[in-house]
Design a protein around this nucleic acid. Structure first.
Length: 268
DNA sequence: GCTCTATGCGAAG
DNA sequence: TTCGCCTAGAGCT
């Protein structure tokens, strides 16, 4: 259940495990059977992430994967065991294996289709070719909230519910501000903070956003780590005291997703 | 066993 | 704005 930092990490893990050697490809569940037959025994050439989309390249054939809410990869070493649960895609060689379960998308595409996926995604803070100006052009003209804009993958690729809540908290910006009411310096700060947070997240495999001066140790409080594995200011902390000002964290359903913010630290 | 939840997204209304 | 969809684990009866 990943945001973009995990997808970049997965690109690296798949590349390390399977690049440049023949891969045994199968679909124990059967829903990627045709693709598996076509790829079986071929070598993985490239693994690439753009936002929450993962691309595994076998020559001109690409596996396009989107994990959705509950998709996930499991990696293991040695001989692959009998599949547990619904394994859509299994890749294996003599050293190890990877199982993909529950993805929203797992499909074989060609270079043209891959290009069109990239074309409909906004800049990804973790990609070297990202152009934050493209996101700013849309945000600065928009009459929808910055909270909704940050989650819109056409505007910005890779940010999900955790990063949007946390970056807005860290910069003291209300999630209800409209895009066109954002200052340019605020957008620059959002982008820079996302690059730093997501880079750290990709390295650590979890999302930690709490600054050293607000950690439980620094504040003399017991540690509290969210189920997703990281330490955060507001995400999934409804009604708990803000780590900075003690005001209860608020939550509301915003465009179908839970939004979390501190009404005192994020006044406007 | 059942019900709920989740870092997502696109189609339908 | 709501629904449906992909799946597994937690917490409940």
């Amino acid at each position: 259940m990943p945001e973009g930092h995990i997808i970049h990490r997965l690109a690296g893990e798949n590349h390390r495990a399977f690049a440049d050697r023949p891969v045994r490809v199968s679909s124990p569940q059967g829903r990627f059977a045709e693709g598996a037959v076509l790829l079986d025994g071929r070598a993985l050439d490239e693994a690439e992430a753009h936002g929450k989309h993962l691309f595994l390249g076998f020559g001109d054939d690409w596996v396009h994967i989107h994990l959705g809410l509950y998709g996930g990869f499991t990696f293991g070493t040695g001989q692959a065991p009998d599949p547990v649960g619904l394994v859509r895609l299994r890749m294996a060689n003599d050293d190890g294996y990877a199982d993909l379960r529950g993805p929203n998308t797992c499909e074989l595409i060609g270079p043209g289709e891959k290009k069109s996926v990239h074309a409909r995604l906004g800049p990804d803070p973790l990609r070297a070719d990202a152009d934050p100006e493209a996101a700013w052009r849309r945000i600065s003209r928009s009459s929808i909230t910055i909270a909704a804009l940050l989650m819109d993958q056409k505007v910005l690729a890779g940010v999900g519910n955790v990063y949007r809540a946390e970056v807005l908290f860290r910069l003291g910006i209300s999630p209800h501000r409209l895009g066109r009411n954002l200052w340019r310096v605020e957008w620059d700060a959002i982008w820079a903070d996302l690059v730093a947070l997501m880079y750290d997240g990709a390295g650590a495999g979890r999302i930690d956003t709490v600054r050293p001066e607000h950690t439980p140790e620094a504040m003399g409080r017991p540690p509290r780590v969210d189920d997703h594995g990281g330490e955060v200011y507001v995400y999934r902390r409804s009604n708990m005291p803000c780590l900075v000002c003690r005001t209860p964290v608020r939550t509301e359903s915003h465009a179908g997703r839970n939004l979390f913010w501190c009404p005192s630290c994020q006044r406007q």
